[in-house]
Design a protein around this nucleic acid. Structure first.
Length: 598
RNA sequence: GGGGACGUAGUUCAGCUUGGUUAGAACGUCGGCCUGUCACGCCGAAGGUCGCGAGUUCGAUCCUCGUCGUCCCCGCCA
């Protein structure tokens, strides 16, 4: 019969000597001194030293001496205070040990392919293949637990604010716009597919129409797009929608949610209210719609000062309606030619033609490139003054299309901060507001919704919708934390006529709209309350709480950049029979390994 | 779709610049010894398709090309 555990390893550390306990877990390490045998027993709470003493239990001692790494055992024994000279202050349970008197070996383990104790970490490919072993490491369990607590705090916070968790289907209908859908072929309707939701966007709005009033859900979302360090094909959102509420109330609720999570999960006090910044300001001053405000390094516009400089490409940039902007790299004039060229490379990957690096010399002098030669000393002085630069600094100047210049300098700004280790440990929250409603796509020759097609234009901009849609701002907002977009949402359109106008601008005519969004447009016609919502990336939030910059670290079973699960080898080929059932046929059998075991 | 980095023992890495006889180290594993260890210690041993394929060469872990895999970035994605 299974001897049942009475305590976790860590709990034993708090018990008095003489207590009888039963503990269970994995053999992390064995130290066999010939007569005495010590075993480090691990469970999710920590490590406990178990002693096998040949004088008390000769039979056990022999078995204990043979225990292999990661064998699973149950041990009963007596809690004992360690001899004074054998205390281990670096161990949570280092003042006690368990003198074993009974031992059950439930199973043994092959030699683990990754190190589970201290020191260097195995490469990620192996960690993902043997994820169950990787998750046995305390650092990984700590994150799993942190994620659990974050979810729990979220659920209880929303519940106490009158929000109701409603689950929505994963088998949805495909909608155009936005990301590529993952498709699920239908057996009952051959040739037709369900789509896994990119987010429950329309359903949560319909719940508002249903009168749910305050909805939330911790929900999986799926997007068939290329992954990144902070992007997985399937990810979790804290999804929220609320009716009859001003944007400011939504901000207030979620600032308190963040405050609660950070306080309760990691003991950090977050000041409120959070800073707010318009999208325009963010782009101009930080070159990003998700600025990291833990450091300054603001971008300044110097177009006016550079016009008529006599420098060819700068004058032509200005003539074409472009901009010239600069960033001060404090103390950057000592950079090597190579380091400067690496900075320029950063700008070039964001589409800039180049980056001009100018050194600030003493006596308001600039040296380097055409600017050092061509600019009058008055102009130089003005440039230095307007940038607040000092001798020894390096000016990074980029000219061209406003968007490209912003992105380039934004990337350089982050690179400088990384190099100079300016990213502190603090948590800087920021609401970015007044996003553009639409984005023009040159290739397709049409506008796309920047957020999604149900986002309300700002009242004062609504007339731009027909005249100059690109100028129209949206009631959309993002919550940014240390340069990471952790959430985003908007006030929604609650009038069917405005929604139709929106579709018009997007080039979705009445017929198309009816076909693709008909059910939603119809719902809007049955009494829709004004409503707004937001969704947070749970994975990214936990990532920040855990202090890692790899999304895979906070997901128990993540996928690689190629969207493969190293442990299960998903995706896999399927048999022709399986495909027939859903009415599909393979185009090529090139990678077919289905019948390897036949 | 494009750019970059990496791939050598079970693991983490060195070796490659300048091709040459037996490819090393540490940890781990296995065997022996050891009564207070906790990075236990000491003695000994086993362990390699140098990712895969082709090419150059008398000879390739090393050079070239291709290919596969992982990571990072751009595009894409909110």
């Amino acid at each position: 019969m299974l001897l049942e555990r009475t305590h976790y390893c860590a709990q034993v550390g708090t018990l008095a000597a003489g207590e009888q306990v039963i503990v269970a877990g994995w053999v992390r390490k064995r130290r066999d001194l010939g007569h005495l045998v010590f075993v480090d027993l691990y469970d999710r709470t920590g490590i406990l030293q178990v002693v096998f003493d040949p004088e008390r239990t000769p039979d056990l001692h022999r078995v204990g001496g043979d225990l292999g790494r990661e064998s699973v055992i149950t041990v009963s024994g007596t809690v004992s205070e360690r001899p004074v000279d054998a205390l281990n202050p670096s161990m949570a349970t280092g003042q006690v040990e368990l003198i074993a008197d009974r031992l059950t070996v439930h199973s043994t383990s092959k030699v683990p392919p990754i190190h589970l104790t201290g020191g260097s970490e195995a490469n990620e490919e192996l960690r993902l293949k043997y994820r169950y072993l990787d998750l046995r490491r305390p650092e990984m369990f700590r994150i799993i637990d942190l994620r659990h607590r974050t979810s729990q705090l979220t659920r209880s916070f929303y519940s106490s604010e009158g929000f109701i968790e409603v689950t929505t289907p994963y088998l949805m209908r495909s909608t155009p716009e936005g990301a590529r859908d993952f498709l699920v072929p239908s057996r009952l309707h051959k040739g037709m597919c369900y789509a896994l939701p990119q987010s429950p966007q329309m359903l949560k709005q319909i719940l508002m129409i249903s009168g749910v009033d305050r909805y939330f859900q911790i929900v999986k979302c799926f997007r068939d797009e290329d992954s990144r360090a902070d992007r997985q094909p399937e990810f979790s959102q804290i999804d929220v929608e609320m009716s009859f509420t001003r944007m400011d109330t939504l901000f207030d609720i979620h600032e308190r949610l963040m405050q609660t999570i950070f306080k309760e999960a990691i003991g950090v006090d977050i000041p409120r209210p959070f800073q707010r910044m318009t999208w325009k300001t963010a782009m101009e001053r930080y070159g990003s719609d998700k600025p990291d405000l833990r450091f300054g390094l603001e971008i300044r516009d110097i177009t006016r000062l550079m016009i008529g400089s006599g420098i060819g490409f700068i004058d032509s940039t200005a003539a074409e309606g472009g901009v010239v902007r600069a960033l001060v790299y404090p103390g950057g004039s000592i950079l090597s030619r190579k380091q400067v060229s690496e900075l320029e490379q950063v700008a070039k990957t964001r589409g800039a033609a180049g980056m001009i690096a100018v050194k600030v010399e003493s006596g308001n002098e600039l040296s380097g490139g055409a600017i050092g030669k061509m600019l009058s000393s008055d102009r130089k002085q003005e440039v230095i003054a307007s940038l607040g630069a000092n001798a020894g600094d390096l000016l990074c100047i980029v000219a061209g299309n406003a968007m490209i210049v912003a992105n380039s300098l934004g990337a350089i700004r982050l690179e400088i901060a990384r190099r100079e280790k300016m990213m502190t440990e603090e948590f800087r929250f920021l609401w970015v507001t007044e996003f553009p409603l639409l984005e023009y796509n040159e290739e397709d020759g049409r506008f796309y919704a920047m957020h999604h097609p149900f986002t309300s234009p700002m009242d004062e901009d609504i007339d731009w919708l027909d005249k100059e849609p690109g100028r129209c701002r949206a009631k959309a907002y993002d919550l940014v934390l240390n340069g990471i977009e952790i959430g985003g949402g908007s006030v929604r359109i609650h009038r069917a006529d405005v929604q139709t106008r929106m579709f018009d601008v997007l080039g979705i005519n009445a017929c198309k709209a009816e076909e693709q969004f008909g059910f939603f447009l119809e719902a809007l016609r049955y009494g829709t309350p004004p409503h707004c919502g937001i969704a947070f990336g749970l994975d990214r939030l936990v990532m920040t709480l855990a202090g890692t910059d790899n999304l895979r670290d906070v997901i128990a079973f993540p996928k690689t950049l190629q969207a493969v699960c190293m442990m299960t080898q998903a995706p896999s080929s399927v048999t022709n029979d399986q495909l027939n059932i859903v009415g599909l046929q393979k185009k090529s059998d090139k990678n077919d390994k289905t019948d390897d075991c036949a």
